[in-house]
Design a protein around this nucleic acid. Sequence first.
DNA 1: CTGAAAGCGCTTACAG
DNA 2: CTGAAAGCGCTTACAG
Lengths: 348, 348
Amino acid sequence: MQQKKMTLKGLAAILGVHTSTVGRVMDPETRHMVGEEVAQRVLKEAARHGYRPNKMAAALRTRRSNIVGVILPDITNPVFPPIVLGIEDELRKHGYVALVTNAGEDPEQQRFVVDQLLARQVDALILATATRDDPIVTHCLEAGVALVTVNRSEDRGRVSSVVNDEYAGMRLAVEHLLALGHRHIVHLVGPQTLSTGHLRREGYELALAAHGVAREDMWLFDCSAYTREAGRAGCLGALARYPQATAILAGNDLLALGCYDALRERGLRCPEDVSVVGHNDMPFVDMVNPPLTTIRIGHHAMGVQAAQLVLRRLRAEGAEGGAGDGQMEIRLKPELMVRNSTTVPRKT
Amino acid sequence: MQQKKMTLKGLAAILGVHTSTVGRVMDPETRHMVGEEVAQRVLKEAARHGYRPNKMAAALRTRRSNIVGVILPDITNPVFPPIVLGIEDELRKHGYVALVTNAGEDPEQQRFVVDQLLARQVDALILATATRDDPIVTHCLEAGVALVTVNRSEDRGRVSSVVNDEYAGMRLAVEHLLALGHRHIVHLVGPQTLSTGHLRREGYELALAAHGVAREDMWLFDCSAYTREAGRAGCLGALARYPQATAILAGNDLLALGCYDALRERGLRCPEDVSVVGHNDMPFVDMVNPPLTTIRIGHHAMGVQAAQLVLRRLRAEGAEGGAGDGQMEIRLKPELMVRNSTTVPRKT
DNA sequence: CTGAAAGCGCTTACAG
DNA sequence: CTGAAAGCGCTTACAG
């Protein structure tokens, strides 16, 4: 049953025509160049042999692989799958495929993975791993691949990106807590090497300042990473340093879940003793105890936009031949999801 | 800064040697065939130009792409990322990359995705989408790619697979409930088109039978899909049909989470009124309310094993030239995770 | 130890 | 409308 691989040349031999004729028939774009009757014969024979054009060979010839590499820091973090889904959906529509790989957070490993993808002739790269000052971005730029970052951006504006509007997100979160009556809000700060961590911290400060809160009443506590464990440690530390805090605004949902762990350890109830707000609205945070109030980010839409950006860039390259250096940043608007982890502050 | 792409031929021209010489130097395997002094000159020049061999061209020539395609039914289902991680880790060690794509549950779409990957000359395919009687498997077999299924298997034994030992998992779950004193255990049955759904149902029956439970006391309720919503509907239906049930054994964690929704709607407490057991121990089910008792499956290990199976197959092909048709099934042992969703049955 | 040549499976100007 | 030819960037027997 196993079919031997049929090639253009093989088909041409069987049909007694030239390979270029068969080739033209196989491509719908050029099919009209061939006589109707010949085209039909070719098509029938191709179908009979289950002919499948070798896209690698075509890619070699045209110098276009129609593959876009996607680099993730951690595929098991639930925020990334929806992004990937969005990217794939959009790329597929345009005849591209995504080569998704998990590169971890380690720059060495990331560089290795990037080099792998470049050697495989990807047309473009979408990085979900970008740091604010990222040697990998430099590396990609030097290699001359089309590049877009998603979810995170770098500081130097060298590359287009699709990100969440972090200021807007933090404003929603802060104003929600303020409206409930909280005046002592700790921000568990995410990694400052990442745009998300950095901008959310600024967003927190901006939002509080806009409501007349003084600098010294902005309570920050740094977390080493976006993990549940770092959130637990951060929460414990913050509680010790700021015992009057009535609310915790976590840098992301994973940190928020770590807060749940810490509060439980300290025998504190959420939200009665301490309100907690997350960030991302990742899957299943509506099911934890208590269901988490958080900021919803359109991850799928983010992926779609990133793919569109890449596609546009690729088309521009093809047309003008030039890089067309207009970088842009697309910011998606987040949304507040009020659930049960926030309430009015405890009496003190 | 952007480097123009350097090729073997380009380097050879600069160095005044033949391309084949440069080629031999670039491959560590054949480097020894070249004079030490020449080799050094080549290496230096290659480094200077940031030469990166074009693996697509090599693949075309050797008819080996060193790419393994991975087909997922739903990347947002948290059980799959760890599997993917395991596959990638293992493949990378051996110079392969995984081309991961989400194909959904629709066979049409799956076939499209498979064809895409075949056209891209993947050396092998790992299917996480397999159904018990799967036309896609037939399709792949006919195309002659090396094939392995992971997490799910097909019934006809045509393809090697790495799966969980479903009987063992259900036995652990059933005996845990029995030990707590439950005598009225409903099984929320997953899709019977999937090996997991089918084997878990059999496992439930086998385990109960082994403890002398009569056929008519085995209470089954079918769920249409492995989703939270289907679990909710299933739980509601099961509660109506079997009001004396004191425990629910869900076909997987998503169904179990749906049970939580349903129980809450009915004003029933878990575990006091009804115990719930899941299956998979997917991320974050330890954080839901109440933390879910479930069966832990080694998803990462499953991915590693699947990759190894593929790699072994690929090596065999290269060596013997023959298919070497020994199919096998690797079954991983699951583990019971007791948390707070199970307790002794309510008094009736 | 090094070179010359053929070829993997396509695409695409260039002829006719 | 169809064919002949060159070439994408490699690898690999075959000479010498």
